[in-house]
Simulated assay, not measured.
Amino acid sequence: MRGADFAWVLSGVLLNAVAQLLLKAGASSAGQISLAATSPALWRTATGLAQHPAILGGLACYAISVVVWIVALSRVEVSIAYPMLSIGYVVNALLAWWLFGEDVNAQRWLGIGVIVVGVVLVAHSGSNT
Rank of each mutant, 00 (worst) to 15 (best):
Thr38Tyr: 05
Ile55Ala: 01
Val91His: 03
Gln107Asn: 13
Ala41Trp: 12
Trp98Phe: 14
Ala93Met: 08
Val91Thr: 08
Val9Gln: 12
Ala96Arg: 10
Ser29Tyr: 14
Leu85Arg: 12
Pro83Leu: 10
Asn16Arg: 07
Val120Gly: 07
Phe100Trp: 06
Ala25Lys: 15
Ala36Ile: 00
Gly118Asn: 07
Ala36Gly: 10
Arg44Thr: 04
Gly26Asn: 05
Leu35His: 06
His52Tyr: 04
Ala27Lys: 11
Ala72Leu: 03
Arg44Met: 08
Asn92Pro: 00
Ser11Tyr: 02
Ser79Asn: 12
Ala17Gly: 08
Asp5Thr: 01
Pro83Met: 08
Cys61Trp: 07
Thr47Phe: 01
Trp8Thr: 06
Cys61Arg: 02
Leu22Asp: 05
Ser125Thr: 12
Leu23Gln: 04
Gly57Glu: 12
Phe6Leu: 15
Thr129Arg: 09
Ala60Trp: 00
Ala7Asp: 10
Ser79Glu: 01
Arg108His: 09
Ala123Glu: 01
Trp43Pro: 00
Gly26Phe: 05
Ile64Thr: 10
Tyr62Ile: 05
Arg108Phe: 10
Ala72Gly: 09
Ala63Tyr: 00
Val91Leu: 00
Leu22Pro: 07
Gln32Thr: 07
Leu22Glu: 06
Ala50Asp: 02
Ala63Glu: 09
Ala7Met: 13
Val13Asn: 06
Leu94Met: 15
Leu95Ser: 12
Gly126Ala: 03
Ala46Cys: 00
Tyr62Asn: 05
Gly31Ala: 04
Cys61Met: 01
Ala60His: 02
Arg75Gly: 05
Gly12Val: 06
Trp98Ile: 12
Asp103Trp: 08
Ala54Ser: 07
Val116Ser: 15
Ile80Met: 09
Val68Cys: 14
Ala93Phe: 05
Asn16His: 10
Asn16Pro: 01
Ile112Thr: 07
Leu99Tyr: 04
Gly101Phe: 01
Ala19Leu: 03
Asn105His: 14
Val90Asp: 13
Val119Leu: 13
Gly31Thr: 07
Ala27Tyr: 08
Arg2Gly: 15
Gly31Gln: 07
Pro40Ile: 03
Leu56Gly: 12
Val67Asp: 10
Gly57Ala: 08
Ala7Trp: 13
Asn105Gln: 10
Val71Lys: 15
Ala36Glu: 06
Leu110Val: 14
Arg44Ser: 07
Trp109Met: 12
Ser34Val: 03
Ala19Tyr: 02
Ala4Gln: 10
Ala96Val: 08
Leu56His: 10
Glu102Pro: 06
Tyr62Lys: 00
Pro83Ser: 05
Ala93Tyr: 10
Tyr89Ser: 09
Ser28Cys: 05
Ala96Leu: 11
Ala81Gly: 04
Phe6Gly: 11
Val78Cys: 04
Gly48Val: 03
Ala19Gly: 15
Ser29His: 15
Gly101His: 08
Ala123Phe: 01
Cys61Glu: 00
Thr45Asp: 06
Ala81Ile: 13
Ala25Asn: 05
Ser11Gln: 03
Tyr62Met: 02
Ser127Phe: 10
Ser65Cys: 11
Gly126Val: 00
Leu94Cys: 15
Ile87Arg: 04
